[in-house]
């Protein structure tokens, strides 16, 4: 077992400040108009950043051993597989049109 890393309160406070700031950013973004996909892209981008901070610092993955990191990366990778391949259906469904209409 690797030795246990002790996280200082300072780190936690910094991260939580970031999280609140990003939440505020989400709210602000929701009231702006960036043109079609961009509102979604930005909102999801912010959410992903927050999730990453939580995983790295609050869940201590930053200080974990390599196998743990690998497990986290693998999970994210498969989420990407799920979204990407599902989108390959949704994005190309219209290409052929509907016969008769």
């Amino acid at each position: 077992m690797s030795e246990h890393h002790i996280v200082t309160p300072k780190t936690y406070i910094t991260i939580i400040a970031f999280l609140f700031a990003l939440t505020a950013a989400t709210v602000w973004v929701a009231f702006q108009h960036f043109g079609d996909p961009w509102n979604d892209v930005i909102a999801i981008g912010i959410a992903l950043t927050k999730a990453t901070l939580v995983v790295l610092f609050f869940m201590h993955v930053k200080w974990s051993e390599r196998t743990t990191k690998l497990a986290v990366i693998l999970a994210v990778l498969f989420l990407v597989v799920l979204l990407l391949i599902t989108m390959s259906d949704f994005l190309t469904r219209g290409w052929l049109g509907v016969p008769g209409s």
């Binding site: 391949i85 390959s88 259906d89 949704f90 290409w95 052929l96």
Partner: peptide, 18 residues
């Protein structure tokens, strides 16, 4: 095994390209 699930959807209205 994770990359093939759409073979259950060939006639479900899934895009033929997918």
């Amino acid at each position: 095994g994770f990359l093939v699930w759409g073979h259950h959807l060939f006639v479900s209205g899934q895009s033929v390209y997918a």
